[in-house]
Design a binder for these strands. Structure first.
Lengths: 208, 208
DNA sequence: GCATATAAAAATGTATACAAAAATACGCAA
DNA sequence: TTGCGTATTTTTGTATACATTTTTATATGC
């Protein structure tokens, strides 16, 4: 899935026009492949929320909407906390070790926005994996994927990155202390804070 | 999207083997189309959770798992109640009228399982639409789609259909009375009851 | 002038053919 | 027999060519 990642990257970096239909031929010329892999990519990306329908045929890059961002974080807060609660008692040294490793890699700069987003999810994902709840995990994964679209705002103008990583450290610490209630509440705040920050920023942008 | 619907229907009616990889050529012969539309359908269905990966390449119809059913209903209860709460105050005569119409159509027998599932969702959907929360609505829609896979259990052995429709009537009545708290709690119970019933049934099946 | 119907174009959808990758079967050695 | 590496076969991935649908432009009637 190389072209798919390439399109994602271009969407993230505003290299593709918003709101107007993307033409398969143009994309196939742009990425130097035939229309078939383009179609595959468009289908997947549409299903994942990176693209939306434009008329009866055709897709487009959807505009940013604060309502969507708010929805995504509302869902994350509800579902991730549920998943985390199910996972908590089963998180062992294996998961903690993996999480720490990812955190150290996250601290290294020189990651593209999309790589950073993926890493960020992997951190959470490793912890949730312990719950062994495939369907729930998959939906939460989808939400985190969709959120990546908005990362440019969070790690650009909002400069949220450093604070977010401190919170990750603290979350790990709470797990190590076996403080379930504390960790749950902290995770909820971690998500809701990020959501509120992003939503407010988008609202302020929209009203200009 | 005709072949996609056909595959869904076949999955629902156990016309496709579970757990073994589906071969694109076999499917293309079965549905009398080339492999391209088959691939398109498989990609979409995988993204929607109707199919899961099998090895590095290839997809399969996932087995029924009570954990998945439980997850789906846990998510529905949390997200649908949230969505319903957002919608409640904006539900007007238009939505109620549409919901009543769907309910009367639901009462007519002679619907295929998948048609019944779709109708069932439309009923809820009409009410939620008032919230005007695209992203949230879309995820909830996805959950309801996935639940359809298990409908064979609910409306076959469990015989839940009549009770479910009575509950729909009651929900509408609560909305008409403008009893927000009551309606919210009722919806939550409506979903959780269905989930519990299904999950317990699947567990009992699995242990045989 | 505006709406609607119709014809041209552009775009997507599908089939066939070929290339790349994955899964499988086989042979060989330990 | 079992494990591993290689060759074969199977399966998926991609390109090109054609069919169908959708969109856009144009013309015609009111």
């Amino acid at each position: 899935m190389n072209i798919k990642e390439a399109i994602k990257e271009d969407i993230l970096n505003n290299q593709l026009p918003r709101g107007v239909p993307l033409r398969q031929v143009e994309l196939s010329e742009r990425y130097k492949v035939s229309r078939i892999p383009v179609r595959d990519a468009l289908l997947s990306l549409k299903a994942e929320g990176w693209l939306s329908a434009h008329g009866k045929a055709g897709v487009m890059v959807p505009e940013f909407r604060w309502e969507e961002a708010e929805d995504l974080y509302l869902m994350r807060s509800r579902l991730e906390c549920l998943l985390f609660e199910m996972a908590f008692d089963r998180i062992g040294e294996t998961e903690l070790k993996a999480a720490r490793l990812i955190l150290s890699e996250l601290n290294q700069e020189s990651l593209s926005l999309i790589q950073y987003g993926e890493m960020n999810w992997h951190f959470h994902s490793v912890l949730y994996q312990a719950a062994n709840r495939g369907a729930l995990h998959q939906v939460v994964e989808g939400l985190n994927e969709k959120v990546i679209r908005y990362l440019g705002f969070q790690y650009g103008p909002l400069g949220y990155r450093v604070e977010s990583e401190q919170q990750h450290e603290e979350l790990l610490w709470l797990i190590e202390q076996n403080d379930k209630q504390g960790a749950l509440i902290f995770l909820q705040q971690h998500i809701e804070e990020a959501g509120k920050l992003l939503t407010e920023y988008l609202k302020s942008q929209a009203s200009q």
